[in-house]
Structure formats: C-alpha cells, structure tokens
Design a binder for these strands. Structure first.
Lengths: 210, 210, 210, 210
DNA sequence: GATGAATGAGCTTTCATTCAT
DNA sequence: GATGAATGAAAGCTCATTCAT
C-alpha cells in the first residue's frame, strides 16, 4: 500500500523523533541508524542522502495527515459554528498526535530557505486557509458571524496557540503543578483545555453577542 | 556600561542572526566569524566556545529585554483592562523588535536539554506569569474580569499568536498579497494587526459582556 | 589470531615508532596516518581517539611480551644463579627487541597521571618483582645467595642499566668509536656487552665469594 | 651575578617543573605563564620562543650543576676507591636534587634530533667520561682495580640505576610499603639506599677480591 | 540487496606567536 | 618595558557519503 517498505518507515520514524528533539543539523546519520536499528549505509542506500530522508519523511507524514476539510466545509448538516468547533478539534488532534512532526515543521518554517519542504508547507497552508475562508463566509452569509474577520489572524492564533502548547508543554506542566500526572492523562488534559479555550475565544470573537 | 566590548557585541549579533536563520547546530563558528568580520580564533578567545557564545548572547539579550512588568502591574493610574492592553503591546513590541532572538528561543524551548538556556527561559516565564496572574486578579477583584480565567492558557495564546506571526510572517505576507509593501511598513502593519486582534480576543474573553 | 586486523596493526606500529621518537604529545594523528599510509579518519574509526590508540598499542605490545617468568622460576633443572643469568638475558632481549615500546614506557612512567597505562605498567612490575623475589629466596635457601639482598634495588639496576643503554645508545656508540659498525652488529654487540656486564655485577654482589 | 633576571628565573623554574611533569610538547606556553604567574606574552618577549626558553632553562641548570670532577680526580689525598665512592655520591646528589631537570634530560636524550640540547648533553657526558676513565686508570695503575673494566658500561649502570629510581620512585615507594613516609624522609631514604647499593656493586666488580 | 570499510571535507578548539599601544 | 588583543596554523575529531564485495 505505502510507497515505503518496512525498513524505510522504521528509519523515517527514528529520524522524525531525532529531528524533533535535536534538529536536523543536530542529528547525525549515525544517530538515526542507531535509533532505527539499521546499518549506517542503509540510509544513503534507501534515501540517497540525509536531506532526501528528511523530505521523504516530510512527504510521508504530510500526505498521511492532511486535514479532510473539504467534506466538512461542504457538510450541509452542520452549522457554521459547529464547523468551526470541529475545525478546532481537528487541528488540536492533528498537532498533538503528531508532535514530533509538528516540532520539525515549526523549525523548518523559520528557516529562510526556499527548499522543497518550505514549499510543501506553504502549499498546505494556502489550501487550508482557502477552505477556512469559505467556512467563515458561510457563517457571515447566514448572519451568525461578524463581517470584519481576518481569517489569516485567526489561523495564526489557532495554530500558534496549539504550537506554543506543543513546544512548551513541559513548562505548562510544571507551572500548573501537573508533574505527577501520567503522560497519557496529561496529553488528554491539554487537549481538553485547549479545546475549551480556543472554542471560547472563537465563539466570543467570531460571533455576535447573543 | 555594557559588560561586553564592541567586538564581543559584534560577534554576538552576527551569531544571533545566524542561529536564528540556521539554528545553533547549523551554524559553524566559521560562519559567525565571517558574519562578524572577525578572526575565527576570536570567538574562542572571547567566549571560550560556541556554546558559551550562545549563552553570552542569550544573557545579553535576555537581560536587556526583560519586560518591566512590576511597575505596570502596580501602577495605580491604569485600569486592569488598560494594563492588559499595555501588556499585549509590550509583548508584541518585544517579540517583533527581537525577532532573531525570539526565533532562537522558540528553537531552544523545543530541545529537551536542561542546560543553562532552558533554565533561563523557564525562570523568565515563571516570573512573568506570576505578575500577570496578579494583574488578572486585580481585574477579578474589581469585578471587571471573569472569575474562571486560566492565565497559563492566555499566556500561551498571547505568546503563541505573536510567535506564529514572527516565524511564519513570509507566509502571512504572501497570503495577504503584501509582497509589494516595504519591509518597515510591513513590520508596522503586522504590529498594528496583532495589537487589534489580540486586544479583541482578550477583551471578548476576559471581560463580562457589557 | 590477533584481536587486531592488519590495518590496525599497521597503524599501531607506525604510532609506536612515532611516539617513541617524538612522544605522545609531539606526535599528531596526521603524522601517524601518514606514517601508516592510511587515511586520517581511519585512526578515529578504528581506535576512537589518539588516546585509545595509545592504549591499544600498549595492550598489544604488553600482552605479547610478558616475560614468561613463572615456569623459569619453578624450573627444577636450573640452579638459582643460572636462573638469574637467564633472567638477565630475557630482560636484555625484551627491552632491546622492543626499543620503541620501551622508550614509550620510560616516558609514560615519568608522567604523574594515574591513567590506564600507568596502571598497566605497575601491575606488570608488581608481578615480575614478586616472582623475582621468589627466585632470590631460592638462592638464599640453598645457601648460594647472600641474605640481605634488596630485590627492588637489583631490579632497578637491571632495568635501569638496560634502559639507559637503550635510550642513550647513540652516545655509547660514539664514545666507543663504533659508528662504522653496521646497525645489526651494533645491536648484537650491546646485547653481549650488557649480558656480560650485568651477569658480572649480579654474580659479584648476589653470591658469596667463592 | 646571573645572566637572567628574577622574572626570567621564575619562568624557567615554572617551565622546568611542567616540562618534567608533562613533557615539552605536553606543556603549553599558557601553562608556563600561569605557573610562573606572569603575562603570557612575556615568555616570547623574554626568550623569543618556547624552544628558546627550553634551551635557556637547560643552559641555566646545566651550567649551575656541572660535577666538579677535575679537582676530585686530581686530589692526591684520596685513594681511587674513595674517589669512586665520592663520585657515586655526587651523581646521586646531583640527580636527586634536580629531579625535574633530570627527567627532562631523560626525555630529551631519547629524541633523535640533533638540536642544541642533545649536543649539550653529549658534550657533558664526553667530558665526564674522560675524567672517570682517568680515575679508573689511577686505580688500575695502583693495582687496586681490575684491568678489564668497561668505563662506559659502568657509567651506564651508575646513571641508569639512579635515573630509574628517579623516574619510577613512586613505584618503588609503593612496592616497599613506604607510602606513609614523609616525602623528605623518603628522599633521604632512597639516597642512602642507592649509595649503599651502588658502592657495593662498584666495589665488588671494580676491585679484586680481598 | 545489503553492509563493513573507508574517506575527503569539515567541524570546534588550542596553539605559539606577534602586534599595537 | 610590558601587555591585552589578535591571529594563522594546526590540532583532534566527526561528518555524510561512497565503495568493494
């Protein structure tokens, strides 16, 4: 089914974890080989280079994790505000279930190179933003949402808030005295908190006061 | 006045830019020397090592950029909501006027090392959060702010939104067809936009509907 | 058979010669690579570091050159004085056939570090000295050797004399007008001379006058 | 009186200790500057280079420590064997009171370079050996000493034994359970032991049995 | 297809020395 | 005369990649 065989996936997953923890440059091919439990030469052999491995990993994760927004936007059974809430939960779910990958994306976005990956990221963003604009427009047409809404800024708050939580969760944990909470519970906890928090913000700012 | 001489500042500034663009590991000491226009050996001479240079730069920037929150929190001439607005503008100003440094912080926060820098960041965060909690409490005591407010989450949204703008501003620029705008104007533009956007969010979620 | 492959031995032998001539610190890894005719990176590849190479070389030589004293000490067919003579010849043979290694040992013994190598040397010395004490005791029990014999001092004279010859043989050569003698012949010459000289000393001082 | 001023002597003494402990190459100019408590640049300033400092130090020590053998050899009031005993004690005294310098000499003798220092050492050795040959000849003429005596070999045993003690005294100390003895006492102890030991050897091998 | 061996290029850091004052 | 600042050269080591099998 997948374009990658078992060993390749093994390597990509080890690479993802390491790139997320130590950055692309901070991770050596040796680290990856060791982490994946494969021979050092296999990485060049399978992917050509470390750079290409990054791209393959990116491609692998990105393609398997595109938000299925189209059908949701076009779903006639949901109200605009319901769609916004679903959108929020999807973003939370996606970013929190792929934290390693997300941390890599955060890093890569900052780099000013115009390589393959930066291009990929922009493409995804453009597409999502177009769909979300349409979603907001639906709410505006129905009279539920305010007229002057900057979709870009709302996306930045949505993604920025979740990102910030992903990248600084250990600080959040400590500041709220949650160190004793089991990791799984903590992950559920922050999903719930983020969901409530973001829905509150979006409702209060997108919609007219009732 | 400063603890660092002209040449040291020169090196630190070159390093800051490069670390922000390419990451700590992605930047070679040779790059920094070239960027600062100094001899390669000067870096070890002045800072001991690349690591120590990073710490010095961090120390330099962090100390010169602490938000003067104490006096603002204790300022009797401002209402709580005015303080929140001032807080927002300070954060925007700080993060946007030190974008390179901020990008480095974003990277460093992600790394799971417990080194000198991670410790520094946490310390600053802890202190700020304490002060902001006090600020919110003032609004709650005066009856202007809602009771159940999660300060941590609001900080995450505040910092996360600005961060996201800083790290992905080129995408924002492109998506909003602002490529032709001069860099300075664009910087002013996003400050203003962020200010309005965040103040709107905070007012709508912190305060009772009027 | 050996724990080291051909290339490793090649490197260790080049290192041994250079360490003996120029000292550990005076020898660069680049020198060794050139001397062994291998790539610079091979040394780290095979040994991890210059330090570890030294240890490996030491281990290699030390293990392959332990004096087989046990069986000689316990040999019933030899008289004590015959054993002493055999001991002298063995030491001469060992030190002169491994002059490079011996010069390294002389250097290393002087250094006040308590590293791996200093530990190794002491261990070997301790063991040998114990066996030789036993050998002397045999001669004392049989009435051939004097009672008050300081084994430590005799070892020091034995090793010190051969060492001194090894380290200053070029001076000895010149002072005795042996410059024209072929190297091989010269080596045989000093072995014979040392043998006679040391046997003379040991007989005259260990044994009662006959 | 001396050709060197106070600061220069200070530097040379620090250098001597460090060269003895860590070797010439293993000692950095920074170490010496720190050890001597002087500015780094002073070493090049006063001596020209590290190499030249070594030579100056060598010259300083060598000149101030030449064995006054001439007068002793020509002394009419002493018998040949008394002269030999005096010679032994002088060598012991010289080598043990200048252990640092002696360790440096041992190292330098091994090096196969024909530099200034190697030349110096050979010159001193040549001179001393000539005088000692004359001393032995006196004993032979008077009928006290054996005819076939290899002066070179006796010198090698004399210097080799003391050298070996100097360079491996920590091992000697440990093997003879003298760790608890105070350093000063230990130094006196080995002088006495060496004196007895070497005198015994020389008497027993140089003289006819009585 | 898979891998141990090998390597050129580059890394950070330290070195002895010199310069400007 | 004395020294903080500066530097070219070289150090040991690691890197991603390739090669021979």
């Amino acid at each position: 089914m997948s374009a990658y065989n078992e060993k390749q996936v093994q390597i990509m997953e080890a690479a993802e974890k390491l790139f997320a923890d130590k950055g692309f440059e901070g991770t050596s091919v040796r680290d990856i080989a060791e982490g994946a439990g494969v021979n050092l030469a296999m990485i060049s052999y399978y992917f050509g280079s470390k750079e290409k491995l990054m791209e393959a990993m990116f491609d692998h994760r990105a393609s398997s994790s595109i938000l299925q927004l189209e059908e949701m936007v076009n779903d006639k059974t949901l109200s605009p505000i319901q769609k916004v809430e679903k959108l929020i939960d999807r973003y939370i779910e996606k970013l929190l279930s792929q934290q390693c990958f997300h941390r890599i994306m955060v890093r890569e976005q900052m780099v000013n190179n115009n390589g393959f990956i930066a291009e990929q990221i922009q493409q995804i963003k453009r597409k999502n933003q177009g769909l979300i604009k349409e979603l907001i427009a639906q709410g505006q047409r129905s009279g539920e949402f305010r007229k002057n809404v900057d979709v870009s800024l709302f996306m930045i708050t949505l993604v920025g808030t979740i990102s910030q939580m992903v990248t600084t969760q250990h600080i959040y944990r400590e500041m709220n005295n949650l160190q004793s909470m089991a990791e799984d519970d903590f992950q559920k906890h922050i999903r719930k908190k983020l969901s409530q928090h973001l829905k509150g913000i979006f409702k209060a700012t997108l919609m007219y006061e009732q």
